[in-house]
Amino acid sequence: MRIGAIVRIVPDLVMGIEIEESEIVPFKYVPNERDEHALEEAVVFKEKTGGNLEVVGIVDDELRDDEAMEEALALAYAKGADSLKKIVLNRRTFDRREVARAIADHFKDYDVVMVGIQSIDSFAGYLGGILSGVLGYSYVGGVVGVDYDGGLIVQKELGGGVVGKFRVKTPAILGVVSAERPITFVPLVKLRQAMKEMKVEEIEVEVPDMGGIEVVRFYEPEKPEITLLEGDVEELADKLVEVFKSLSLV
């Protein structure tokens, strides 16, 4: 079983971002949380199948040496990835169609590729899904668990706590929403060791220009003000019913 996992880095919302009309300026990057789940699930899957796990970092040229990418790959190595690659996009793009085309050639040799269903900075695509379209692979998103019984059985969230089990043909790409176990903590000593020992193959790719989506502006949503309701119970109940109605709860 050849297993691939994609890790990406995204602006660290905890540290805050600056919103400018034409761009978003982050202070710091972190590994994309959904990708951390994808990686964890890939490790679980490796343990289940005894397969070979290759973790691929995808990063644009400007951030090729960002420490968050380094950390993401080191975490993967510490958790048991067999090999590491870093695909460097020659330019930055928000459009996942372009990313998918740029990297597609490098994802032809896997039976299963796990990727976070979405990264937080995305508004133009689900990378895994698009990539599956480009490669002609099977795709399932919203994945919360993967089993193997000779074939691939994928658990996908269907809303309201309901989970669907799907039999999926390989090769397949899986958009993971959360791993079946909590993200394993990697102690600092192991992380440092991984940073020292790991070998990363770097691949540079060109990003095609496909156009079609133009950013007009970025801006902050208006903060919802709290509506504080006071008064007698009868009145309050009426007001609440109105609130429920506006949220289409009744």
């Binding site: 989506i213 950013v215 801006y219």
Partner: peptide, 12 residues
Amino acid sequence: TYGGKVLVDLEV
């Protein structure tokens, strides 16, 4: 996008 922190207007 950005975890609900950012809105983006687009022409497509």
